[in-house]
Design a protein around this nucleic acid. Sequence first.
DNA 1: GCCGGAACAGCAACGGGTTGCCATGTATTG
DNA 2: CAATACATGGCAACCCGTTGCTGTTCCGGC
Lengths: 358, 358
Amino acid sequence: MPDHTRPPDKRATIYDVAAEADVSPSTVSRAFSRPSRVNSETAERVRQVAERLGYRTNPLARALTTSRTRMIALVIADITNPVYAGIVRGAQETAMHDEYTTVLIDAQESDRLERAAIERTMSTVDGIVLASSRMSDSAIRMFAKQRPVVVLNRAVADVPCVVTDNPRGVRRAAEHLGELGHDHITYVAGPQASWPNGIRWRSLLEAGMELEIKVRQIGPFSPTIEGGERAAEELRARPATAVLAFNDQMAIGLIRGLTRMGVDVPGDVSIVGFDNTLAADIVTPGLTTVAAPFYAEGSAATRHLLTMIEGAPGHAGRPMVLPVRLVVRHSTAVRRNAGRARPWVRQRQSANPATQLS
Amino acid sequence: MPDHTRPPDKRATIYDVAAEADVSPSTVSRAFSRPSRVNSETAERVRQVAERLGYRTNPLARALTTSRTRMIALVIADITNPVYAGIVRGAQETAMHDEYTTVLIDAQESDRLERAAIERTMSTVDGIVLASSRMSDSAIRMFAKQRPVVVLNRAVADVPCVVTDNPRGVRRAAEHLGELGHDHITYVAGPQASWPNGIRWRSLLEAGMELEIKVRQIGPFSPTIEGGERAAEELRARPATAVLAFNDQMAIGLIRGLTRMGVDVPGDVSIVGFDNTLAADIVTPGLTTVAAPFYAEGSAATRHLLTMIEGAPGHAGRPMVLPVRLVVRHSTAVRRNAGRARPWVRQRQSANPATQLS
DNA sequence: GCCGGAACAGCAACGGGTTGCCATGTATTG
DNA sequence: CAATACATGGCAACCCGTTGCTGTTCCGGC
């Protein structure tokens, strides 16, 4: 004899509610998923019974027929990089606002891991945000064929993208250094495979042309403090008075490395970073850096993804570009050594000259 | 007439594979979920057909009957706090290793948001790791009744917990300061509601007794750089020579605030933080701090959760305690002013005295 | 040559909702 | 008052696997 009393540890289903409210399961289902198809009094009664029984619609069961899970995947290259905190929060908050849940995937800078994790998760999510993906364009396009995908911090043809205005950021940094009298900027490169690294260098080349500032590149180095310290070593052999680093971590490594070598920042060398992470404000001297709107990035990418999930086409044409700004702190200063020769011969001078903020 | 040819954009199902391999759907299912129940040749054939058709088992459909999604939720209090990066990675990596997917929930320091998000996600995950939850003990216990739950950085009765050895960390910090000649330690408190805050203060009380060091508390302050700066203000009215801050952020705020006020760190005041975040190494002077094994925390909590999901009982008795260590940098130094009076009258002295690392 | 049991594969009933279609009852309209 | 339209709610199929049970085949043992 089947026992129809539900064991108390199990969640109530529409069938339990239906029995209790004396309607059919379909009515219960509709009372929640499309209330307009149900008499409002009936719907109310159903809702009350459901409340009393602690009923919650099972998202998995729903997903089985609707193929909508209300989950999205957010794939980031490296969660230990503080840059992603803002992106994650922006994405998470935007998703949560529309009652979507975010699945976070940390690719740990590995193409292989990234792929495997997406492969495994793809069928469970309604869409994917790829933040700084390390995968090939073609791999990304392949995923984009199966699910809505938005790419962050990178431009991939035929896939909707959200990027920050790297050219403008670089340009502002170059202008700033130019105004301080620097006529030569060294770019300390990050990972060759990184899309922002490429565009930042190209933007610097271009800005150099227009502003009549000479530019060169050293690297690539690892985009970490250690990478920056190694870059400092290399800089010893080929001195500079103005440096633009791929990111803040490297800029901080540079400050450290140079300071240890007895080079004064910004007295002897001005340094500009990229990202405006928390650390930029903590390091001494405070790092002049190009601020990216991380929260807005995550938020914009997610919002766009959600509209695609709802059926919008997705502007695969031009990437969406978010504005950046230059935050001037104390790692940049007026160029002191007008002459070319031996720019790093120490001339004692104690404190950091004050610099105006923008 | 029903059309049995599958539209090419849809994923293949076990039915497609079954038809193609000329077996029943159940055989296909078993070929993947319990191969020992199927003739190995048959299984091989099925697998080949599946491969050819690009079949992947649909995790949602599977979950519907097995009620196992192979997803776990990781709830953190505030993703912008760098402390969680290590925890998230530890959890993520451990989960991924066992082919579990991690759903990240950023509670944004809000009890309400945290609850709502868990409520919504609970039915889709097999278990939950609560890192620094802001919810009440009873709320946590309620969730723990419905799903396996492991609590991180907090002790909740009747729920498995993973914590770091706060007493030992505080003790080491106190010993260190004592050895430097400090006979009085001021604890700069973080959020009242924070569990670690409570235990750190109590541990300091205890350590003070044993080491014959006087202790007092000021605060609470917000656990941020700004909070630390505000604490610095308050410290002006009630000077100290040795300070233990609730966390690194506050310690950095203290360094900043005090330095700005003309107080020399560590010359006039020694400061110890908690967490050993990246910033501790970046700030000047480098921050002496109690290092917590974040990665291990996330990893241990997740591993424990997974064993619970697999059916193990869960050691709800004593919390699992992870070891900490003191990282000595340059924010602590030998106490200079032996006298009580006006400990902060400036006595010029330029650089940070070197301090030995432990 | 017969019997018991192991190995294998299929049937069918789930799991918990969703939804196209139909039946019923009521309201509207001419 | 008949005819039509609309509002409601139920039936049953479906989404895609999983699994208890059953039926068949084949094997070894006596």
